[in-house]
């Protein structure tokens, strides 16, 4: 606390680095967006796999979900980047980072999607069979549209977490927002100033998303 009292704020240093700050922010947004797309797509496929007719596929998908959910993202980034991607000569840290971040959240999304799909009652599935739909048509016309509404609030929350987790990608050398601010703080001899706009830059995106999630939750709470 007494540090704060004595601290002489130096905003000029921060202002000089605004270009870098903006670049970091756009990087964070861009790679998060890409990772969101990866996570939703992979999460959907994992959910289908977990519900599949084929026992080995079911086991593999369920195992992957458990493995990913059972260890910290930081550890997965380090192993995924320095061991696996290295061995595969993958290059492109940005791409590897997007895939790792996306897969981590895909495991959580798969569980959210599975819960939503399993909440669709047996009578709806029977009605789908009764009108003559096959398995694909049942997913496409009956299960997915109804499950999507139920999964929306949880999914939005998960995507907010993804955006925040993107800051960890600095450990594999990606110059996203947090990393830019660290560099900026060091270079401008202003160790604290950068952190306040940093928080604001995340909140500008996460607060509306969280609000959206709550709104959706309330809206779908009325539906049965």
């Amino acid at each position: 606390m007494f540090l704060a009292v004595d601290y002489r704020w130096n905003w000029a240093g921060v202002w000089r680095y605004r270009g870098q700050f903006a670049l970091g922010w756009l990087t964070t947004l861009g790679l998060s967006l890409a990772a969101m797309v990866v996570s939703v797509a992979a999460g959907f496929l994992l959910m289908l796999g977990c519900r599949g007719r084929w026992m080995p596929v079911r086991l593999i998908c369920a195992g992957m979900v458990e493995l990913v959910r059972g260890s910290p993202l930081l550890v997965q980034l380090l192993i995924g980047y320095y061991i696996i991607a290295e061995a595969l000569h993958a290059g492109f840290p940005m791409l590897v980072g997007i895939v790792l971040l996306g897969s981590f959240h895909a495991a959580y999304l798969a569980e959210i999607f599975r819960g939503a799909v399993e909440s669709i009652g047996a009578s709806q599935l029977e009605a789908a069979r009764a009108v003559g739909f096959d398995r694909m048509q049942t997913y496409r016309f009956v299960i997915v549209p109804q499950a999507m509404r139920r999964a929306l609030p949880g999914t939005t929350g998960q995507l907010v977490s993804l955006l925040k987790d993107s800051s960890l990608l600095s450990v594999i050398g990606i110059e996203e927002l947090v990393q830019k601010v660290r560099v900026m703080n060091a270079a401008s001899y202003a160790p604290l100033e950068g952190y306040l706009p940093l928080a604001a830059a995340y909140l500008i995106v996460t607060l509306p998303l969280a609000r959206l999630a709550r709104g959706l939750e309330r809206r779908f709470a009325y539906e049965t």
Binding site: A127, V131, G132, Q146
Partner: peptide, 30 residues
């Protein structure tokens, strides 16, 4: 099954579709 019509005790309409779509969707897709 596609040659039969079923009606259930609990109606089992698709709640996310309108009345009209409940009828047109199987006509088109099946």
């Amino acid at each position: 099954r596609r040659g039969n019509g079923f009606v259930f005790q609990g109606y089992n309409l698709f709640p996310h579709l309108t009345t009209l779509q409940n009828i047109t969707l199987p006509l088109q897709e099946v």
